[in-house]
Write a protein that binds this DNA or RNA. Structure first.
Lengths: 142, 142
DNA sequence: CTAAGTGCAAAATATTTGCACGATC
DNA sequence: GATCGTGCAAATATTTTGCACTTAG
């Protein structure tokens, strides 16, 4: 891969979709979205391109939730909220979550004798929709 | 499952092993450790018991690293360091990592309209051993 | 011509599950 | 005798990969 230019059409489409959604997609989701417009797209190509993007630092893996790896084109430091019910992932901007001390990484490095390259903060719980659905379900029960 | 007592022998062995190691094991690792002592243990049983423990809140999943889910019998709030080379996982005691503001969860809940039930902080990088190995490799190259 | 990108299908991997059996209460 | 725990093997699900073909430069 030679920089963001010179992308093949399919690679371009995959990266563009990634960049234009807030869903923090999985390979499967990307494939399903693009397949109608690009009928000869294969799932293997999506996986291969995600690996290429990740390798080159263009995207980050957020983790594996509900069995599927989720990706983020926003590589700047920020946190995520993951709904444990529908697995929606929501960005938490750094400005809303200023709790990481300046030198905590260096502190941990010294304490634990490790070299820290990155860190992630993830919150788990119920998103707005799932909270409401749960409330409705409880109402129906009584 | 009726509380920690009344465990079957195999369930007991799995939980005891989990509790007596610092490795934050995977199902496979537990199976390999116990198989010599319990020859008729099956991998399915390890998976099933881990699911039972997780369901009942006795253990927590730390995440999936290198393709395998890793578990922690220490359910109190603390952070982890994950070596991206050998996938060793090291505990970071809360006392060494006091950077979470008292009310940050409530703040995020209000900002994002979500209900937070848990959060995790994970550091990534190279552990002491892998750092040294890397240094040695570089030396040999030159 | 060469290297990169791809479709397709098979393979690899981790995990889950159906079923029958044995143990426990 | 009903429930729980289990071995075993098949099934599932996701991701990776080998191979042949195409395409861009």
């Amino acid at each position: 891969m030679q920089g963001k230019r010179n992308f093949s059409a399919k690679r371009e489409a995959i990266y563009t979709l990634l960049s234009s959604t807030e869903t923090h997609p999985s390979a499967e989701w990307i494939y399903e979205q693009l397949k109608p417009q690009i009928p000869d797209l294969s799932l293997g190509t999506v996986y291969r391109n995600l690996a290429v993007f990740k390798e080159s630092g263009l995207i980050k893996s957020i983790g594996i939730f509900d069995g599927q790896e989720r990706f983020d084109p926003n590589i700047s430091q920020h946190s995520h909220f993951v709904c444990t019910c529908c697995f929606k992932i929501i960005d938490i901007p750094k400005s809303k979550c200023l709790f990481m001390e300046q030198n905590v990484c260096q502190y941990v490095e010294n304490q634990c004798n490790v070299r820290i390259e990155d860190y992630s903060i993830t919150f788990y719980g119920l998103c707005e929709d799932c909270s409401e659905n749960q409330a409705v379900a409880v109402q129906k029960d009584s």
